[in-house]
């Protein structure tokens, strides 16, 4: 099941223009970069990206920037506050006639999951609380990627990171729900695999004044341990197994924008990734595999039980 598309029917309808040039030092096959590139295409020009320390910080290494728009690197813990400073400044300068309204910009926070779920949560929650009119893109690679892939509060159950050698024992924080609890006008999950879904969501959120939060599963060949060629395949499997639900919440009301007709077993998603290899070798960890599948099933059961008002 897929929700009706309002703005883009197929990938061909996406804007051709690029705001992120090639030549950045990010890994080949980086899903976070794909998401940013796609989101920026739809947002259009006139953006200032406010970045939290993480992999994407190395997009711009002096004297180069791949962005045709503006960029401000802040810290790992305060990107949303930086966004507030820039947004407020633009507003007040325009209000006071010191800046031409044509020079206004959309403010986009770009932060990893470590920043989003952990260190920057206070700053982000504060910005949501104040109703800051901004975009927030969390490229969720499910660990502290830039420092060599250590565990974060987004690392999924069972995943191996550099600080969880036998696999994370906790479940991920549900940041979508944490955000939604504050009732910002728009919260969505997206994926680089479904560019049209992503574009639709940006377009739907565009008119809303306030925090517009995008959580993207950012497939990470380097940290997750798979050949970059498989980036899109892994992203697709995350969706088709139900591990990564595509959804949005407008003023808190949730709807799923895509529901697989037939869910593929979670194993298909886990198996190609080195970070889950210990679940299969030297012997299968049946118990954990069952739990992971169960968690996914438990998530979807109430969703699937709902009347198909979604479609």
């Amino acid at each position: 099941m897929r929700v009706k598309r309002e703005h883009f029917r197929s990938p061909k309808d996406l804007p051709v223009v690029e705001y992120v040039t090639p030549g950045s030092p990010l890994c080949a096959g980086c899903g976070g970069l794909t998401t940013l590139r796609l989101m920026h295409k739809v947002l259009g020009e006139n953006v200032v990206v406010v970045n939290a320390a993480g992999c994407m910080t190395l997009m711009a290494v002096y004297p180069f920037t791949p962005l045709k728009s503006s960029w401000l690197y802040t810290t790992m813990g305060s990107a949303a506050a930086g966004a507030q400073g820039v947004r407020d400044a633009l507003d007040v300068l325009i209000e006071r006639g010191k800046l031409d309204a044509a020079d206004d910009l959309q403010v986009l926070v770009l932060a990893g999951d470590g920043s989003t779920y952990d260190m920057g949560l206070s700053a982000t929650s504060g910005a949501i609380h104040r109703g800051l009119n901004f975009w927030y893109l969390c490229y969720d690679n499910q660990a502290y990627g830039n420092t060599g892939f250590q565990m974060s509060a987004a690392s999924p159950l069972g995943s191996r990171t550099a600080t969880s050698h036998s696999g994370a024992v906790q479940r991920r924080k549900d940041i979508f729900e944490l955000w939604r609890a504050q009732r910002p006008p728009y919260v969505a999950t997206v994926s680089s695999h479904d560019a049209v879904d992503l574009a639709e969501k940006v377009e739907r959120a565009r008119g809303l004044n306030g925090p517009k939060l995008f959580l993207s599963l950012a497939v990470c060949p380097t940290g997750w341990g798979f050949d970059p060629e498989l980036s899109d395949e892994i992203a697709k499997l995350a969706i088709e197994t139900g591990v990564w639900p595509l959804k949005e919440a407008v003023d808190g009301a949730v709807r799923h924008t895509y529901v697989p007709n037939r869910f593929r077993p979670v194993e298909e998603y886990l198996r190609p990734q080195h970070r889950f290899a210990h679940l299969f070798e030297p012997q299968r960890d049946e118990e954990l595999l069952t739990r992971i599948q169960q968690n996914v099933d438990d998530y979807w059961a109430p969703v699937l039980a709902e009347p198909v008002a979604n479609a």
Binding site: V50, A81, Q84, G85, D88, A89, D91, V92, S122, A123
Partner: peptide, 26 residues
């Protein structure tokens, strides 16, 4: 001018710097 309260000084000072970077007297 605009007065805004923050969630802590780490945020407050980042916002101060960011606003100044954007051209506001802060």
């Amino acid at each position: 001018g605009r007065f805004v309260t923050f969630d802590g000084e780490h945020s407050m000072l980042t916002a101060a710097g960011a606003a100044a970077a954007a051209g506001a007297r802060t």
